[in-house]
Simulated assay, not measured.
Amino acid sequence: MKLVVVTAGLTQPSSSRLLADRLAEAVARRLEETPGTSPEVRVIELRELAVDVANNFVTGFPNARLREALDAVTEADGLIAVTPIFSGSYSGLYKSFFDVIDNTALTGTPVLIGATGGTARHSLALEHAVRPLFTYLRAVVAPTAVYAASEDWGGGHGAFTDGLGERIDRAAEELAGLMAHRAPRREPEEDAVVPFEEQLAALRPPQ
C-alpha cells in the first residue's frame, strides 16, 4: 500500500512538513491495523523540486528527478497533500506541481488535504481553493481537511484551533478507509499490433 506525502513548505524546519509527518504517521498506524496491509510511505518536498518544476513549464518536459516524483504521486494508493497558505490560497509552488500532472492521472486516488498558516482565519482556504483543485483532478478527497495555525503548535486555545490531534486522527481514519476500499487500479489496455503486410492487404481493392 503506497502512501505518498507531498509538502510545499519552503523553510526548514517547516510547519507544513510537521503537519504532513503527523498525518502520515496517523494514516500509517491505521493501515497497519488492517490485516495483510503494510504501508510504504514516501515524502516529496516540493522546495527541492522548485527549479525542476519551473524548467518543465519552459521545456514542456520533466527531467528525471521530477518524472520520478510525478510517477510516485500518480501511482500512489493514497495521497497526503499539505500546503502553506499565502494570501488566502495555496502556494504557487504547490499549484505549479499539480499543474504538471495530467488532469486524469489522479482519477479515483484518495487524497487527504492539509494546510498551515499564521492564523486560523485562513482555514477556509482548504475548502474554497485546495479541495476544488483536487476535485478538478478527479481525486476522491477525504471529508475532513486539516488546517494548523501557529497557535496549534504553541499550545494556545482558541475556538477554531482546539483539537488538532482529534482532527488529524479523524482525517487519517477517513483516508485509510478510502485506501482500503479503493477499487483495484486498472492497467491501460495495449493496442493490438497489426503486421504491416496485413495493413497493406486491407487497402487492396477486392478482386
Rank of each mutant, 00 (worst) to 15 (best):
R186Y: 06
R42K: 12
T74R: 11
T116F: 04
G118A: 07
A139L: 12
N63I: 06
Q199R: 08
D21Y: 00
S91C: 05
R204H: 11
A115K: 01
D102I: 04
V6I: 13
I168Q: 00
D102S: 12
R22N: 12
I168K: 02
G114H: 05
L178Q: 08
V6L: 04
E25W: 02
R167Y: 14
L106R: 03
D169A: 15
L137A: 15
A20C: 09
E189N: 09
L70F: 09
R47W: 10
M1I: 09
R182W: 13
E198T: 10
A171W: 03
V41M: 02
A192S: 04
L112P: 00
A120E: 10
E166N: 10
R138N: 10
A129Y: 10
N56G: 15
F134N: 00
G156S: 13
L70V: 12
D152S: 11
V5L: 06
T144P: 01
D191H: 11
A72E: 14
A201N: 14
V73N: 02
P13M: 08
S96K: 05
L79R: 05
V140M: 13
V4W: 06
R204I: 15
A69N: 07
I85K: 02
A76Y: 07
L175Q: 04
P13D: 02
V27Q: 00
D191K: 15
L200S: 07
V58W: 10
P143K: 14
A64Q: 14
R42C: 09
P188N: 14
E151K: 05
I85Q: 00
A105W: 04
Y90F: 15
L106A: 05
A20D: 00
A202I: 03
G158M: 14
D52G: 08
L79W: 07
L23E: 00
A201T: 14
G114R: 10
R131C: 05
V6T: 03
N103E: 10
Q207D: 09
E33C: 08
V111Q: 02
D21V: 07
V5F: 09
S91E: 01
V146C: 01
